[in-house]
Design a protein around this nucleic acid. Sequence first.
DNA 1: TTGACATATGACACGTTGTCATTTAAGATT
DNA 2: AATCTTAAATGACAACGTGTCATATGTCAA
Lengths: 201, 201
Amino acid sequence: MPKITFYNLSIEKREKLINAVKQEFSRVPLSQASISNIVKSARIPRGSFYQYFEDKEDAFFYLLEERVKRNQSEVYFLLNKHNGDIFEMMIAFFEKVITEQDENRNFLKNLFLNMTYEVEHEFGRSFKGYETNQQFVQFESKVNKEILHISNQDEFKYLMKILTSVLLRSIIETFSKDQSKEDALRNFKLEITLLKRGLKK
Amino acid sequence: MPKITFYNLSIEKREKLINAVKQEFSRVPLSQASISNIVKSARIPRGSFYQYFEDKEDAFFYLLEERVKRNQSEVYFLLNKHNGDIFEMMIAFFEKVITEQDENRNFLKNLFLNMTYEVEHEFGRSFKGYETNQQFVQFESKVNKEILHISNQDEFKYLMKILTSVLLRSIIETFSKDQSKEDALRNFKLEITLLKRGLKK
DNA sequence: TTGACATATGACACGTTGTCATTTAAGATT
DNA sequence: AATCTTAAATGACAACGTGTCATATGTCAA
């Protein structure tokens, strides 16, 4: 987590810093990003960076968390829009992510092509909320369970795990192969179809 | 790929080097591994390392590829053992990976908790073989398609994609949460059950 | 013995990281 | 206004890691 001093920053200075951070993580993935570049582009002395963040990772996860918060709103919105149909929500979410433009796209590309467990775990919160609160229950209540082939609470969790792992892998494939929106969507929809109807006769 | 000089090495020296490499990548994930440590533990001069490998990644992927080759044999073996039932093969493979012991386990843990796209792609070859040859067709021919709910060649590919992504995420979860073999297996089997019967009523 | 080629070696230049002693700023107190 | 106190800013620096390169050493054939 960013240090208190970060939050005490004036809006302008904070924006300047965030932009520099974003720029660096859009340029290269976390492992290749350099603090030297960030401070250079934000025009702050090196020591200052460490006044605001613990390290590279800290800055990266700050950015990621902001994105996850936006995702959560998006997920709610899409779930409502599709009347609680989780499959349709996933497809809409998939489409939204892969059509992101410009710097955001590069950030996402670097993010998805370098999905360590920690990053995946954080990103997964887009759908689950944070354990500490009741967001998962809240989320669950928005889902139309009528159409799902599950017999208990527990199975719903596994269903979500399956869906998010297929979603993630599809996004990764899209970015890695630079697939067109159309191709990517067709592939993902096909996988969802298979998932819905089952893999075994 | 390792350079020719690497393959010209005497068996003893090569073993010594490989062990040092393995040790380092069992200690920490790729991004944190250091060549300095490797050469120290292999007792070779720094320059020699670069005589054999391009860089850290090169050494890492060499190790990974060796593992993938072994996986391929294992997959064939397990597929035969279970009469072409791909679901049973997956479960058996899952069990084998998560019960790996000692240094191998640490290597795998670092591997799975830091699954970048490139690593995942390489690892995925455990099931698919290499594109350049007919291994995928060969693999496919060993699978009992009778029990699969697919209507064409193409759908089989998607089915494999789904299964491998669920398998991977399950392994990752097992390592990240340090689950017991029993818990992990129970969870994975449940997911396979859901996958088989379909997620939608 | 010599030449030609492959391999080995380790010092070095370069870049990056995180720290810390020092300076500067911002309030609070008298 | 002068002084004190605490927070924040600064940049030089030590420590470390990387990849290279000029030089040394080994090998083998002519």
